[in-house]
Write a protein that binds this DNA or RNA. Structure first.
Ligand SMILES: [Mn+2]
Ligand SMILES: [Mn+2]
Ligand SMILES: [Zn+2]
Ligand SMILES: [Zn+2]
Lengths: 138, 138
DNA sequence: ATAAGAATAATACACATTATCATTCATTAA
DNA sequence: TTAATGAATGATAATGTGTATTATTCTTAT
């Protein structure tokens, strides 16, 4: 028996999922495309977009709408938070305990039906900070 | 005496700032353009984009990179949080006390130089919820 | 094997944002 | 006051991310 939201695991979808699960970098759709193309050279970019969107709708992966101009994807679906480097755009996980109770607080103080939340920190990553220090001493 | 980051308050910039301060709706650049055009019909869309970006860089306003395809702007620069309706895209403030101490926690658990954070809740706004209830009873 | 439906790949399209550049405006120094 | 300089603007072109379209290919059920 299959629930209505189960999707067929086509070869394309399988590879997209596997490649996404391999990395911790929160790649963009284009980056996933590049990763997947090494295994499926004939896959279309539209297929990658379409299926990332579909899997996100099904809760199989996370679509991160963080700062910057591109959406990013995450195979880890547990509630967790992110930090984005304002220099290079890199996104990393932040090992902070999740605070699901925030949703209730938000519901209490608004007339929205609250569905969830996300915390995005911003900062300078180690690499960019080091690069800056280096060029300052030149 | 002017600090280096002070910018000249051209008529265009003044009107953009005033119109943005008038609303609580977190308008997109295009929406700001429409508001401003009523007072300055000859202003260019590029000028609006350029100056919203500039003012955000100077800390005079906030650029909200929330979910959805367009960036939004906010004349209120105090640390506060937002909720976005996943149906209609509307963005409202959430009256939750700010938690600046989160930045320190994030700094402790990462090698980033943490600059700040933002919390974005998602949910269904009153209007969209009512519309849904209405069409369900048809 | 055949038919029906789902998914794919190629391509065209939409649209938000940025870049370019000639013109206009503001500021400064003769 | 005027001339020179640099900054800002407005018009327009260009870029890039993401979506829509559609003919073809693949699955599944009969
Ligand atoms: Mn993550
Ligand atoms: Mn706000
Ligand atoms: Zn970085
Ligand atoms: Zn709504």
């Amino acid at each position: 028996m299959q629930s209505q939201s189960d999707i067929r695991l086509t070869p394309q979808r399988q590879v997209i999922l596997e490649e996404l699960a391999k990395v911790k970098t929160h790649p963009t759709a284009n980056e996933v495309y590049d990763m997947v193309r090494k295994r499926l050279p004939r896959i279309g970019l539209g297929t990658v977009y379409r299926n990332l969107e579909l899997m996100a709708d099904n809760g199989m992966i996370l679509k991160l709408e963080v700062g910057g101009s591109q959406k990013r994807f995450d195979a880890t679906t547990d509630l967790h938070y992110h930090i984005r480097c304002t220099r290079c755009g890199k996104v990393d996980d932040i090992e902070l305990g999740a605070m699901p109770q925030l949703d209730q607080l938000a519901a209490d103080t608004s007339d929205y039906q609250v569905l969830g939340h996300h915390i995005e920190f911003s900062g300078i990553c180690k690499t960019c900070a080091d690069n800056q220090a280096e060029s300052a001493t030149n």
